[in-house]
């Protein structure tokens, strides 16, 4: 189904993100994985609001009103992107601290349950 390619792209991005999270041992790479996951979800939100042949939902004063894409998903994506930035900043500062303590970014340096 050609019309579903955007959704398959979204699925691909999410899978790449999850793969990075599950198999990469470097903390920075894990953070990148989360960012890719986030991009996948954001792309999904944006694709939901598109209508064939539509323009951005901004009125320009022209008399003929063209078909407009949905504004709500774009607003949601905006919120989601800002949240992504916030989470990214926090994660990176925690990674900096972990690096200070262990001198390494390898995931095995994260102490487990044992003392």
């Amino acid at each position: 189904m050609i019309a579903n390619i955007p959704y398959l792209t979204v699925a691909g991005l999410i899978i790449i993100g999850l793969y990075t999270l599950l198999f990469k041992k470097n903390l920075i790479k894990m953070v990148i994985g989360i960012t890719i996951l986030q991009s996948g979800v954001n792309l999904f939100l944006i694709t939901l609001g598109y209508r064939m042949g539509s323009v951005a939902p901004i009125f320009t004063g022209n008399a003929d009103n063209p078909v407009m894409s949905y504004p709500v998903p774009q607003a949601l994506t905006l919120t989601s992107i800002v949240i992504g930035v916030a989470v990214l900043a926090l994660m990176l500062s925690l990674v900096i601290h972990i690096y200070r303590h262990h001198g390494s970014l390898h995931v095995s340096k994260l102490g487990g349950d044992d003392q």
């Binding site: 999270l21 998903p73 926090l90 925690l94 303590h101 262990h102």
Partner: peptide, 29 residues
């Protein structure tokens, strides 16, 4: 060091959880 690690684990788990919640919300939307 353990406090920072706990915080990092927590934010990674929370973010993944929250992203799946957002994905599910988008599906319903």
């Amino acid at each position: 060091a353990k406090a920072v690690e706990a915080g990092f684990k927590y934010i990674v788990i929370s973010t993944i959880g929250a992203l799946f919640v957002l994905f599910a919300i988008a599906l319903l939307y």
